[in-house]
């Protein structure tokens, strides 16, 4: 079971890195923000898996905060871009 959780965490970490590549390379700001939305979801999954793997309950709270803050960031960026 531990091996499976380690494998899942590795795959999720690779997905986070791929999302960072898109965020660094995206042609427009909205592409970067889309990559950030993916980073929020995938990062939350990674944190939840790591919380179970390392028996650290605080990582679940961190996942919750990450999901919520990703939404806030997207709202702020899109609203700020639209009102100019």
């Amino acid at each position: 079971m531990e091996i499976a959780l380690h494998a899942v965490a590795t795959v999720l970490l690779l997905c986070v890195l791929a999302g960072l590549w898109r965020a660094a390379r995206g042609p427009s700001t909205r592409d970067r923000v889309t990559a950030f939305a993916l980073l929020g979801t995938t990062g939350a999954a990674l944190l939840v898996v790591l919380a179970t793997l390392t028996q650290t309950a605080a990582l679940r709270d961190a996942a919750l905060v990450l999901v919520a803050l990703a939404t806030v960031v997207v709202v702020v960026v899109t609203r700020g871009t639209a009102e100019r």
């Binding site: 889309t34 939840v48 679940r60 919750l64 999901v67 939404t71 997207v74 871009t81 639209a82």
Partner: peptide, 30 residues
């Protein structure tokens, strides 16, 4: 119980947040 509740909460937050995110990002942009 607490672990299950928090995991479900993470997923519900992600659903709500991604719906709002995608709508905002895909809105007819200038």
């Amino acid at each position: 119980g607490g672990i299950v509740a928090k995991l479900v909460l993470v997923w519900l937050f992600a659903l709500l947040g991604t719906a709002a995110n995608s709508h905002l990002l895909a809105a007819p942009a200038r």
